[in-house]
Amino acid sequence: MPLFAPTMSTEKDALLAQLEHSIQNARDVFFELDIDQLRAKPIASSELTLGWLLLHMGEVVDGWGKRAASGPVDPFAGMTAAGAMREADAATAIGEGETAADLLRRFDEYTAAGLRAFASADIDAEVAVPDAPWFPEDMESFNVRWTFHHVLEELHRHSGHADILREAVDGAQMYELRSRAEDIDMSYIEKWFAAHADELYAG
């Protein structure tokens, strides 16, 4: 099923499969873009760029993977919220001489590390709550299961942002990009719509 994550027999395997699938789905949005397109702000009312979104999604997978693998021990202990934001800014900064290939390589490194970390984690293990003002002060811990769902939420939210920005840049849309990026033959979808046009568009 090229457009969907595979069905798995355990909860953790299903979450890992969905995470890997969502990472690939996100990556496909950036297929064949150049660095100028990744730096562009194609929507006048927004500061978002495709390059920032690409690196932010990678950094989210990596950072939360580190938390999941560390269990109740905070891997970022001692780092303030302001310090964490500076680290995130550095992780998403695009160097003057960087190319599109460089940004995709960084995304791949972030997400590969995050996937390895999530794979090593016990799904029921407690995870330390980050020291940040947007987390409730009385919340003592998450569990790894929650971190999976949080990262998937982030990927899906920002993949949607990226879809809109990509279409604004060059008109390319998700099905077309996935087909080209992963060499998936989706002609069967067009054939189905063509065969059922009378039923679908009658009246």
Rank of each mutant, 00 (worst) to 15 (best):
D34E: 10
V61S: 09
K12S: 06
R27Q: 14
T49P: 11
R39K: 15
D28E: 13
F31V: 07
I23D: 02
V29A: 14
K41R: 15
L53Q: 12
A14C: 01
G51H: 03
H56A: 10
Q37E: 15
V60W: 07
T10F: 11
F30V: 05
T10I: 05
L19W: 01
L53I: 13
S46P: 04
S22Y: 02
E20K: 15
A14R: 09
V61R: 01
L48H: 13
K41G: 06
A40Q: 09
F31W: 14
E59T: 00
G51M: 03
K41V: 04
T49A: 09
L16Y: 09
V29Y: 00
V60E: 13
H21P: 01
L15W: 04
S45Q: 13
V61E: 05
R39E: 04
D36W: 01
A14F: 04
G58P: 13
V61M: 10
A26C: 15
L48A: 13
D36T: 12
L19A: 04
R27A: 15
E11M: 13
H56M: 09
T10P: 14
E59A: 15
I35N: 01
A14K: 01
V60T: 14
E20W: 03
R27H: 13
L50G: 09
Q18V: 01
Q24V: 12
D13M: 03
A17C: 09
R27I: 07
L19M: 15
I35L: 08
D36L: 08
D36Y: 00
A40W: 05
L33I: 07
A26Q: 06
R39Y: 08
L38F: 08
L15A: 12
T10R: 10
Q18A: 13
P42W: 04
E47I: 11
L33A: 10
V29K: 03
D13I: 03
F31Y: 15
Q37N: 05
M57Y: 07
K12N: 03
F31Q: 09
E11Y: 01
I35W: 00
Q24Y: 09
S45V: 14
V60Q: 12
E32G: 02
E32H: 11
